[in-house]
Amino acid sequence: MKKTVIGIDVSSRTLDLSVIEHKQVHYATIENKVKSIVKFLKAYDDTKTIIAMENTGRYNWYIYEALEQFSFEVYVISPLHLSKSLGLVRGKNDKIDALRICQFVQKNKAELTAWQPTARNIQCLKVLLSERNSRIKTKRQLLARQNDYKLMKTLGLDKELLALNKQQVKALEKQIKKIEHKINDIIESDQKLKNQQQLIKTIPGVGNVLSWTIIGKTEGFSKFTNPRKFACFAGVVPFEYQSGSSIYRKPKLSMFADKELKSILHLAAMSAIRLDNDLRKYYVKKVKEGKNKMSVLNAVRNKIIHRIFAIIKNQTAYKNNLVLS
């Protein structure tokens, strides 16, 4: 039996669907609501159906909720992966996008990993981390703006605007602390996640924020099990650029990375090399050998990832104790 393929172009209010069935293509547009999605999918409940969609963050939530009632083969595709695979294309609309998602999954299904529902506590953790990061970004922008108010002194607005700015910063700080307490409560309420965090934090430089982020990104080490793949995802693995004997460049990091995760890993690496541990010894040794400091620091980030996955796999705490140098 040939499988039916449904491609879904997701937006906040509607879903544009392209259905390839018996070599025929059908289109439909429905509301992005659980009731509407379930009603549409019931027509395919008794068939071998593949469903594919882009990962659009929160706009996918109603689809995920509806899919829990079915046993379809589901693929959630990275928008970047999809756009890079299209090659030279002309024109774009929601109907075409839905069809392209169908065609993408037909061609690349063997290389894709099927979507699995995420545990509720992991979903909550990821949402809270997203909310925390949003507030930290806003706080950073507000703090950067404080120096600009000096320029408004002649207008007599500097003190008033600075006071309002500081009020916003204080409010954000309270919200961030509240979110962090909620994140900690989620971790503490799940023995498996609690154990994972305790193990991760035994590694030099790894604190609460990185441990929360790693658990969220890996979905409790169920989404990623290979440290190299996760290191590639984080953007800390250099790739070669070489063709024949005439084209060669030094290995460089890929631009396609989770920049938020990479930034947190950078802070962890900076912290690790200030402590008395094997990562610091490695860093000092390589720098003395003449290696570029940023290149060595990136290697430290990579080593932190591999250590995290190793201790989770072996369920053994890191042996090198954190001692201030």
Rank of each mutant, 00 (worst) to 15 (best):
I176T: 07
L161V: 00
G205H: 05
I200L: 15
P204K: 01
Q191T: 14
I179F: 04
D185P: 03
N195V: 06
K177D: 15
T154F: 11
E173T: 13
E188S: 12
A171I: 07
L172N: 08
K182P: 00
N195M: 11
E180K: 08
E188M: 14
I176N: 07
D158M: 00
D190H: 10
I186W: 12
L164P: 03
Q197V: 05
E180N: 08
S189V: 08
L199C: 03
N184M: 14
Q196S: 10
V169L: 09
Q197A: 08
Q175P: 01
K201D: 03
G205A: 02
M152T: 03
Q196Y: 12
K170R: 13
K170A: 15
L164V: 09
K177T: 08
L193K: 02
Q196W: 08
K182W: 03
Q167H: 13
E180Y: 03
A163M: 08
L157P: 04
K201L: 03
T154R: 11
L151W: 10
K153V: 05
K166Q: 15
G156L: 09
Q197K: 12
Q175V: 11
L193I: 05
A171S: 14
N184T: 14
D190E: 13
N195S: 15
L164Q: 10
T202M: 06
K192T: 15
I203K: 00
Q191R: 11
A163S: 14
N165S: 12
L193N: 01
K178W: 02
A171M: 14
H181V: 13
M152E: 07
K178E: 11
K182V: 00
I179T: 07
I176D: 08
Q196L: 07
K174I: 05
I203F: 00
D158F: 00
L199Y: 01
Q191N: 14
L193V: 02
I186T: 06
N165L: 03
N184A: 14
K159L: 09
I200K: 01
Q191E: 15
L162S: 10
E160K: 03
K194E: 14
Q175W: 11
I179V: 08
E180D: 09
I176Q: 10
L157V: 06
E180T: 06
I186Q: 04
H181K: 15
E188T: 13
G205S: 04
G205R: 05
V169C: 13
E160L: 08
K153R: 05
I179E: 09
Q191G: 03
K170V: 10
M152S: 04
E173P: 05
E173Y: 04
Q197D: 01
D190R: 09
L193Q: 05
L199G: 02
K153M: 05
E160F: 01
K178A: 12
I203V: 01
S189M: 12
I203T: 00
K159Y: 08
Q196N: 10
L164W: 01
I200N: 06
P204S: 01
I200F: 06
I200T: 02
K178L: 11
K174Y: 10
E180A: 04
D185H: 13
I176K: 07
K178C: 04
G156R: 04
K194W: 13
Q197R: 09
A163N: 11
L151M: 12
D190L: 11
I179L: 08
